[in-house]
Amino acid sequence: MQTSELQILVVLAEEMNMRKASERLFVTQPALSQRLQSIEKSWGFQIFIRSPKGLLLTPAGEKVISFAKEVVEKEEKVREQISELENEVHGTLKLAVASIIGQHWLPERLKKYVQTYPHAKISLITGWSSEILKSMYDDHVHLGIIRGNHDWKGIKEHLLTDTLYLVDTEISRVEDVLHTERPFIQFKSDSSYYQEIQDWWHRQFQTTPKRTIVVDQIETCKQMAFNGIGFAILPSVTLKEDEQNIYKIPLLDEYGQPIERDTWLLGFESSFELKQVKAFIDIIRNEK
């Protein structure tokens, strides 16, 4: 069986939907269905069960997919090793990045990367730092960028430190929070960030917020605060100096110092040896 056919099976197993898989593979649904029938015929048994809700793997199909993923991953690693022999930067740079960094810090660096190395590809996933760590340990990516101080047994390099601010269109002093009926807008985050905010809040006010709105994304939280719906606590990496008509009050710890949050680059030594990874690291080091 050709590797291209194994790649088709891997995409089908990831999507479990013919339409979505055909879009990813840039083929029509009928053409993909025909290819799948041909692949199943070559194996001599059904790999997927078609249903109105999508695809289901047969027990035999599960073993085939496991085999397909292994072969595709090995081929990709071989191609990366071969690209190391060439002068230009090739291969796929696989990144797993904390959502806040992916939205506000990373795009400028990635733009420079793709302009400088047009032959390189990028695979990017974003999420909470705990999810990024799991992707790293599962060996799904080359580099991870996380928020907060987490244990890591590979290479760990400091990228940036930012501070936390209470932002609002009306509140200009922290003490005014106790007298407002405006809601506290929170965004869902990993446990370490949430605990940091909770600790500051209880140390500052010894009470809970009167009203709270919880949103899924930090950018939604920011836009709601900037549009006067309520106040929020945001890291400085999400804020710009020239933003108008918004108060930004720094959060202080028990010693009167700004509360800071670190961002780290993580990786294993083997990944740092890849040319496309080295190129990306050089860019972000030069941007510090």
Score class of each variant (00 low, 15 high):
residue 49 I to S: 06
residue 52 P to W: 06
residue 37 Q to A: 14
residue 30 P to T: 13
residue 27 V to L: 15
residue 50 R to F: 01
residue 29 Q to Y: 14
residue 27 V to N: 03
residue 31 A to I: 09
residue 38 S to W: 04
residue 46 Q to E: 15
residue 29 Q to I: 15
residue 50 R to G: 05
residue 26 F to S: 07
residue 52 P to L: 08
residue 52 P to F: 11
residue 43 W to N: 06
residue 47 I to S: 03
residue 26 F to G: 09
residue 32 L to V: 03
residue 42 S to K: 15
residue 45 F to K: 15
residue 27 V to P: 00
residue 26 F to Q: 14
residue 33 S to L: 04
residue 32 L to Q: 04
residue 43 W to C: 13
residue 35 R to G: 05
residue 38 S to R: 14
residue 31 A to D: 08
residue 35 R to H: 10
residue 55 L to K: 05
residue 51 S to Q: 10
residue 39 I to T: 02
residue 47 I to D: 11
residue 38 S to E: 13
residue 32 L to D: 00
residue 35 R to F: 07
residue 53 K to C: 01
residue 55 L to Y: 07
residue 30 P to E: 14
residue 48 F to P: 10
residue 46 Q to G: 10
residue 29 Q to L: 06
residue 45 F to S: 03
residue 30 P to Y: 13
residue 47 I to K: 00
residue 44 G to M: 07
residue 35 R to P: 03
residue 25 L to W: 07
residue 38 S to C: 02
residue 43 W to S: 07
residue 25 L to H: 01
residue 43 W to K: 06
residue 53 K to R: 12
residue 28 T to D: 08
residue 54 G to M: 11
residue 45 F to A: 04
residue 37 Q to V: 09
residue 55 L to N: 02
residue 29 Q to N: 07
residue 34 Q to P: 01
residue 36 L to R: 12
residue 43 W to V: 01
residue 48 F to D: 02
residue 31 A to R: 14
residue 42 S to H: 08
residue 39 I to N: 00
residue 49 I to L: 06
residue 30 P to R: 12
residue 39 I to A: 00
residue 31 A to T: 14
residue 30 P to S: 13
residue 33 S to V: 05
residue 49 I to C: 10
residue 38 S to V: 12
residue 43 W to H: 11
residue 46 Q to H: 11
residue 37 Q to M: 08
residue 51 S to H: 05
residue 47 I to N: 00
residue 43 W to L: 14
residue 53 K to S: 11
residue 45 F to T: 11
residue 48 F to N: 10
residue 45 F to G: 01
residue 31 A to N: 14
residue 43 W to M: 13
residue 54 G to F: 00
residue 35 R to T: 07
residue 29 Q to T: 14
residue 28 T to E: 06
residue 45 F to N: 04
residue 46 Q to L: 07
residue 45 F to Q: 10
residue 31 A to C: 04
residue 30 P to M: 11
residue 25 L to Y: 01
residue 50 R to Q: 09
residue 42 S to F: 02
residue 27 V to K: 02
residue 34 Q to S: 13
residue 27 V to F: 09
residue 29 Q to A: 09
residue 28 T to H: 08
